[in-house]
Amino acid sequence: MEVKATGSQSRHLPNRLGIKGWAWAGRYTIERYLYTLHRLTGLGLLLYITLHLAMNGFRLGGVESWEDLMSVFGMSGFKVGEYLVAVAFIFHALNGGRLMLQHLGYTLGKPKPPVYPYVDSMRRRRPIVWVMLALIVALAIYVLVAFVI
């Protein structure tokens, strides 16, 4: 039976798994979980920016309104939140750079003949992922030590 595509399905392949597919659909590689984390950090940053812009509106209320708001943000809980935003930004930026290079074909490497044991280009280029993750951890520690503690 022919199924007629509706809405955006007419331009994209149907997503049968939905959001569940972000977490599990068989044996995912680390790159797939980085993709999920990229989306989660992106949504988190979007939510933060929306709140940030709303808070900026307090500036229109003058000096008293602004300083009342800043006294709330001086609490230690907000400092932790600010640090998490910085870490989410570091991850999203570096992983985004990796995805960009990969989408444009720069980090895929040259094609190889399919000789057993088969190793796809993603696994051959795995060191890029490890270097990126090491860089994220190093920058997260640097921001913690230099700006938070």
């Binding site: 509706t6 809405g7 955006s8 399905q9 331009r11 994209h12 149907p14 997503n15 939905g18 959001i19």
Partner: peptide, 8 residues
Amino acid sequence: ESIPRLPA
């Protein structure tokens, strides 16, 4: 991608 029924 998540809600394919929505018109783009």
